[in-house]
Simulated scan of single mutants.
Amino acid sequence: MLVNWAGDTLAISDEITGEVATAYLFVAVLPYSGMVFCRAFTDMKQDAWNSAHVQAFEAFGGTTQIVVPDNAATATNWPSKDDSARVVNARYRQLAKHYGSAVVPARPKRPRHKAAAESAVNVANKRILGYLNEELWRTLVELNAAVDERVVDINERIERADGSTRAERFTVEEAHLLQPLPDDRFESVEWKQLKAAKNYHVTASYQHYSVPYGLAGRILKVRLTAAKVTVFDGESVACEHPRKHGRKGQYSTLAEHVPKHHQDMDGLWSAKWFLDRARPFGPGRSVPRRSR
């Protein structure tokens, strides 16, 4: 499997703030059949890179013996400043070991080592980004649903020179050569010690997650994966949330964590919540300055 980031990007406009974020497209290809997988992410950091590989293997229904990345920082790095050789970084090695794959980075300035990846990126730029960059995307979920539709078109409807599609060649000649997926999905794990604020939320990577309000002010252990945030009180799990991505400052608040005097407040900490609290005071108005 050859992997790379597409050169072009897409824009996501947040439906609440109007803030525009950049979405980056990960591209994976099986070079024999040309079968393509694509997924959009809000950054190109290690968690996104690893998650993209996991999703690609699951989409193909198995793992490959070799993965060939370009020399992205999330794939390889220099062990020392004066050493020209690049090595696969530790977290990427963990993922490859979990899936029984060997990472063999493409050599710099050797286009033939990654020709299929470059071809797949060109196809993605033309048939995915070229189709979608005129739309106004509100969420990453909405964007990836559209990406999936375009990938189906590439794999199942576009005929190759011999009249077959990528999906047909993959199904007949390639799928049975993949290694089976392991029983457990690979997850990158990060641990933090965080203090629950007075509003009974902990803040991780600029996003806010509620805890039982009785834990406000306590130092708690927090486990972060690409998909989940798990909060521990000592050795016991206090709560778990789906991990927030994208716009900074989002809140995930569970109803059972809210004290009684907040329980009748719909959408706690949201823009609607603040507007509802302000509405009894009437429309905004300026207050005249007092003369000295």
Rank of each mutant, 00 (worst) to 15 (best):
202 V>Y: 00
190 E>K: 03
208 H>Q: 02
173 E>Y: 11
185 R>N: 05
211 V>S: 04
172 V>Y: 06
175 A>L: 09
210 S>A: 06
173 E>F: 05
168 E>W: 07
181 L>S: 03
179 Q>T: 07
180 P>T: 05
175 A>Q: 14
204 A>S: 10
209 Y>C: 01
186 F>T: 00
163 G>Y: 12
186 F>P: 06
168 E>N: 11
163 G>A: 10
169 R>S: 08
164 S>M: 11
199 N>T: 02
180 P>S: 10
200 Y>H: 12
189 V>G: 02
205 S>L: 15
170 F>A: 12
196 A>R: 00
205 S>K: 13
190 E>I: 14
192 K>N: 02
159 E>V: 13
208 H>A: 05
165 T>P: 03
195 K>P: 01
162 D>N: 14
191 W>E: 14
206 Y>N: 07
211 V>N: 04
162 D>H: 06
210 S>H: 02
178 L>T: 03
202 V>N: 01
168 E>V: 14
170 F>R: 10
164 S>G: 01
191 W>T: 03
204 A>T: 08
176 H>N: 06
193 Q>A: 05
196 A>T: 02
180 P>D: 08
178 L>A: 09
189 V>K: 02
188 S>R: 04
172 V>E: 07
204 A>M: 15
207 Q>S: 02
203 T>Q: 12
165 T>M: 07
164 S>D: 14
159 E>A: 13
201 H>R: 04
192 K>P: 00
187 E>H: 04
199 N>D: 14
167 A>T: 04
170 F>H: 08
179 Q>S: 13
184 D>K: 11
188 S>T: 08
178 L>K: 00
209 Y>S: 02
202 V>M: 05
192 K>M: 09
196 A>W: 03
177 L>S: 04
210 S>Q: 13
200 Y>V: 05
176 H>A: 14
180 P>Y: 14
165 T>F: 05
